[in-house]
Design a binder for these strands. Structure first.
Ligand code: ZN
Ligand code: ZN
Ligand code: ZN
Ligand code: ZN
Lengths: 145, 145
DNA sequence: TTAGACCCTATAGTGTACTTCAGGGTCAAG
DNA sequence: CTTGACCCTGAAGTACACTATAGGGTCTAA
């Protein structure tokens, strides 16, 4: 069966055992089976779920939002149409984040492009601006940040 | 000159005046000039900066990280090479986030694709899995989440 | 059979990012 | 000249996501 202790799980994904127990209490992780002595015993699948949680956290989802994302795997009280709609809604939220992230990325890459690595600071052309233009071009005076 | 009050700024970007003052205290916003009576008077640029902050927050940057991002506009104690390196490092962090976000997006879109909107719940093929495969294919038993 | 690494629960404490409160002052409209 | 919407500071309070502490039990190896 090859089950994992909480310590093995925590170490494998790089979090603390307390965090794993915390996620269980918050409903992000299902309570695993227990050994005779009451120790938690995790299926290897748990690692994937925890890594999913970590990715989602890194891009700004709250634990409650992550719980919603994970709930898409579970049987909804309604039908597939409902489930699919919820998934598509989440994808929309993700696309909004991708958009924000790309805007920030563009700002920074424009900033680094404008800066010639060889020049000295006094000639640097980018010391005042971090543009977020290139999108929403119809906005008012969009010149800086 | 067309300066904005803190209330106008807050309303324009959809946050509270307290949050604007809080960002100033945290160093994310430079202290603006004041009117004779001590009221803050913002240049319209401030709106762009606040919107940048909001985008960055949404994709999981902390206020301290955002301060670092914003600091790329300012004169560093060193030279352009240093500045450019910092910008490129940040871009790397953003690319990692883009990667995570795309993995999550793939999981969800695969989930919604597998689910035929017409079928009833009993036939639904996706009720147990939310894959994060397609990347890191060399990993151990990568079948679920 | 005992030291040390690990596990358990319950509860308290921490850091981040606000939000609210207390006690004011400013200003345009009526 | 007062009323109401707005502004000020400083301090206290809150929600979220952990993190640490207290007071245990388990297990493996010397
Ligand atoms: Zn430069
Ligand atoms: Zn289905
Ligand atoms: Zn008051
Ligand atoms: Zn103890």
């Amino acid at each position: 069966m090859n089950l994992l202790s909480i310590g093995q799980v925590a170490k494998a994904v790089g979090i603390s055992v307390e965090t794993v127990r915390f996620y269980e209490k918050q409903g992000l992780l299902l309570a695993p089976m227990r050994s005779e002595s009451g120790y938690r015993q995790y299926k290897p699948d748990t690692l994937k779920q925890l890594r999913f949680i970590q990715r989602a956290k890194k891009v700004g989802f709250t634990l409650n939002e992550i719980k919603e994302l994970l709930s898409l795997r579970k049987i909804p009280n309604s039908n597939c149409t409902n489930l699919k709609q919820r998934a598509l809604k989440k994808i929309g939220e993700i696309d909004a984040k991708l958009n924000d992230l790309n805007r920030i990325r563009d700002s920074l890459s424009q900033l680094s492009r404008r800066c010639n690595s060889e020049e000295n600071i006094v000639d640097c052309p980018i010391l005042e601006y971090l543009d977020d233009d290139k999108r929403n071009e119809k906005d008012e005076s969009r010149t800086h940040l």
